[in-house]
């Protein structure tokens, strides 16, 4: 048996067409109400006509290895799992929102209905059954690659080795588990 998994994702922004299917898929997967999202797609424009370009950047919880949200949580509700996932024990959460403000990626949400904080959990229910996270499966252009960093043969590990992706917000020393190709 090889090393236990360390889940991670590679997001290649050069392929993203900003369709928001990942946003919609995630809402369903996590049974979120109409106004709540675990992920988003930011848009940037460059240049003036006709030398113009734009770019879409999908963002969600980065499952930081050095997660400020876990550090600041006063109740221990936010925690880091051995497989790399940063999760919220919703029962323990008091809804102080400190973690929301501590997250440089704005990846956390209040559940209006329940009052606790929730966020992307890397679709744990799915990956435990070897099914791709909802946002990955639905993406038509293959922006997102999900996999096990500890498995050198995973497509993820291979791509990371070849493409030399970066972390976003890397000055913040959060050590994210999501890698980006910003193109």
């Amino acid at each position: 048996m090889s090393a236990p998994p360390k889940w991670a994702m590679l997001i290649d922004t050069s392929k993203c067409v900003g369709c928001l299917a990942c946003v919609s898929a995630c809402q369903n997967q996590n049974e979120l109400p109409v106004t709540e999202y675990f992920n988003r797609v930011e848009e940037q424009e460059f240049g003036r006509f006709p030398n113009f370009n734009r770019r879409f950047v999908p963002i969600q919880c980065q499952h930081c290895d050095n997660p400020p949200c876990v550090d600041v949580c006063p109740t221990g509700a936010s925690y880091k799992r051995a497989d790399g996932i940063v999760a919220v024990d919703t029962q323990r959460c008091i809804g102080c929102k400190y973690c929301i403000l501590s997250c440089p990626y704005n990846a956390r949400n209040i559940s209006r209905e329940n009052g606790y904080v929730h966020k992307c959990g890397f679709c744990l229910d799915l990956i435990e059954k070897h099914i791709q996270p909802a946002c990955v499966a639905t993406c038509p252009t293959g922006v997102r690659v999900f996999g096990d960093l500890n498995d050198p043969n995973s497509e993820l590990s291979r791509l990371i080795a070849i493409k030399k992706p970066v972390h976003i917000g890397k000055d913040l020393n959060t050590k994210p588990s999501i890698y980006y190709i910003i193109g």
Partner: peptide, 22 residues
């Protein structure tokens, strides 16, 4: 609850657009 693409159908080949989910 949710929608998944049928990997066998030609027009979508396993994927679903945002409208399909919503």
């Amino acid at each position: 609850w949710k929608v998944e693409g049928n990997p066998g159908t030609y027009n979508n080949a396993g994927t679903v657009c945002p409208r399909g989910h919503a």
